[in-house]
């Protein structure tokens, strides 16, 4: 039509935005049952911006962990698509790093051996591998423990090794599945602090699964609230807290109360049914 009028269309010089680190596009997932399937995820759409920390909160059994398995290509979606850095995830996605609920260290390798593992299988030369692994061990205060086997390390130390084993090969997206769930409150706070410093150090994208609202607010730029099964996105909330944050006194940060209150407003309906069936909270 513009050609008919003899006017050429305006040319927009689009600023080339990097694609989302992870992009869930109307992802549905059904687990096959005996007679019919169980709908685990009922159409999830959201994306993780490169370089941000995003948390997903939701009641147990809402399919939070499943999201990470989809993003890493361990499970294919029943319908919809998962994209990672502009590429569709249709096989094992080695661009992501996965930090599991349990530390899952290789018990036959020392702390150093564990951190070196991903570098070794990626063919990094011995000397460089050792230097990089030692550097990360030092960052989390584990110098002197490099020759300890996992069984000789405390739970918190194992968790540190497990996290840096993933960060050491600098995956573009780090997926963390309730990594601090089993730790005591003190160790947890320390690890929140360390995770944020490591993130400042490396600026990798992180997708963090938790059921703890305070943890989500403390760490993230964005929080996704999910509903009880079948999992749906209920709310995407931007955390207004400035960085760097003091994780030890996060509740004193301006805006924390408000953030907590607005998240809880969405979240309480989800936990309510479990706590008091049919009742008010």
């Amino acid at each position: 039509m513009t050609a008919i009028l003899g006017v050429s269309p305006p040319v927009y010089h689009e600023v080339k935005k990097p694609p989302p680190a992870i992009d869930f596009r109307d992802v549905k997932l059904t687990f096959a049952g005996q007679t019919d399937g169980t709908l685990v995820l009922g159409g999830i759409s959201f994306s993780v911006r490169p370089g941000e920390i995003m948390s997903v909160v939701g009641p147990s059994g809402c399919g939070k962990t499943t999201l990470l398995r989809l993003a890493s290509g361990l499970v294919p979606p029943s319908s919809g698509q998962v994209w990672c850095n502009g590429r569709r995830v249709d096989a094992l996605n080695t661009e992501v790093g996965f930090v599991t609920q349990d530390s899952n260290l290789f018990p036959w390798l020392t702390a150093l051996g564990n951190v070196e593992f991903p570098l070794a299988v990626r063919g990094v030369p011995d000397k460089e591998r050792r230097e990089r692994a030692m550097h990360w061990l030092e960052l989390v205060g584990l110098s002197g423990f490099e020759n300890h086997y996992p069984a000789q390390l405390s739970g918190g130390m194992q968790k540190r090794v497990s996290i840096i084993r993933t960060l050491v090969y600098e995956p573009s997206v780090v997926l963390l599945d309730e990594p601090f769930g089993a730790l005591d409150a003190q160790t947890r706070m320390h690890l929140h602090h360390e995770l944020l410093s490591l993130w400042q150090h490396q600026k990798s994208t992180m997708l963090f699964i938790t059921h703890d609202l305070v943890e989500a607010i403390t760490l993230s730029d964005t929080v996704v609230v999910m509903t009880r099964g079948p999992g749906l996105v209920k709310e995407i909330y931007d955390v207004p807290l400035a960085r760097p944050r003091n994780v030890f006194e996060i509740y004193l940060e301006p805006g924390f109360d408000k953030a907590y209150a607005s998240l809880w407003k969405h979240f309480k309906h989800e936990v309510q049914e479990v706590l008091l069936p049919g009742g008010a909270l």
């Binding site: 890493s72 599991t100 290789f106 593992f117």
Partner: peptide, 28 residues
């Protein structure tokens, strides 16, 4: 532990590497 096998694969280990560096040591 299959979780260890999956983790190794995600870290970029090929199948031969996963067998020699994860599966065999785990069962040794």
């Amino acid at each position: 532990n299959e979780e260890l096998v999956r983790l190794a694969r995600l870290m970029g280990a090929s199948w031969p590497q996963t067998i020699s560096r994860v599966i065999l040591p785990a069962a040794a």
